Simulated scan of single mutants.
Amino acid sequence: MTTSLQKPSSTAINLWTVRLLDDGYCIIPDSVPQTTVKALNDELDDRFARTPFCKGGFYGRRTKRFGALLRRADTVADLIRHPFILEMARNALGSWCDCFNLNLTQAIEIYPDAPAQYPHRDQDMWQGAKGQMQYLLNVIWPLSDFTAENGATLVWPGSHDRAALELPPQGDPIVAEMAPGAALVFLGSTLHGAGANRSTSIRRGIIISYCLGWLKPFENQWLCYPPAIARHFDPELAALVGYSLHRPNLGNYEGQSPAVLLGDNPPDYLAATDALRPDQQAALDGYLAEQTASDDATQPAAHSDP
């Protein structure tokens, strides 16, 4: 996996995060070099050619989709672990989780004559409270030009947060026109949908999304990347695909982080080990200290021999 991207400045991240949270989306130009785009197209060409069209009106009968991209293209790790995007995800989701995980990687081709996709909010797959918190951060990476003619993604500005409860949506969508190398970042509560492809060309892109670490992801990451595959990932990437604990103790294997399975010889017998948030650890320590003090107070006083 390549890791050539440099850590961005906190000022730039903060500016784009403010725009994301205010409008529900932002388009960040020149986020990856053209060499990365070319490598991804080269790595995915054969898979696209072999993949059949989707079935069903939502996925799109003139659309091809496939996931598990870390198994299809090594270069996709650069997108998943893009330092700018990861920091934006922490800013957008960190208030509601101890850590976030990879929710989906999906490559998409939309063919000529594809109709516009039904407008939707990706967070609606989870039946939690709406308009109060964010569950998901989406990133669309174009691998070809996104234009109004070929069906660039439609986004409804301001349709997130409390507006996520409104039907029908207020206002008109924007057309997320962008060139390869850019990134469309939007919240899971933002209304969006693919536009109609009225051109003679295929529109190609990649979707990568991140969700709260205590949610069941859209794409089953552990089936996509079982231990035999994930043990070849670096620790950060393995944690993103689910080989990590979300405190307290969520997602454990025999009471430990599932990362224990990524070693050469995973042990058969493990000691279940606490993984608590700092506030929980402090509460536990206080509770145990009170018990110790109470036990000490009830013990008979020691008497020395005369």
Rank of each mutant, 00 (worst) to 15 (best):
A182R: 00
V139N: 12
G171K: 14
G193F: 06
A129W: 01
P227N: 11
V175M: 04
S199H: 02
T147F: 00
G213R: 01
R121L: 08
A163G: 00
L215C: 06
Q123P: 08
G195C: 01
H232S: 04
L143M: 03
A163C: 10
G131V: 02
P173S: 12
E149I: 01
P173M: 11
P180K: 05
F146Y: 13
F233A: 05
T200D: 14
T190E: 08
S199I: 03
Q170Y: 02
W222G: 02
K130I: 10
L165I: 09
R231K: 15
L223N: 13
T153R: 05
A182E: 05
D172Q: 15
V175Y: 07
I208K: 02
D234V: 01
I207E: 10
F233V: 02
M125V: 13
D172S: 10
Q170P: 00
Q170I: 11
A152V: 07
L154S: 13
S201V: 11
H192G: 13
S159K: 11
E149M: 03
N220T: 12
A228L: 13
S201I: 03
G151S: 07
L137V: 07
Y225A: 02
D172W: 03
T200Q: 09
N138L: 14
L215M: 09
G205A: 15
P142L: 00
A228E: 15
R162A: 15
R162N: 15
P217E: 00
A230Y: 02
I229M: 09
F146R: 03
I229A: 13
S201N: 10
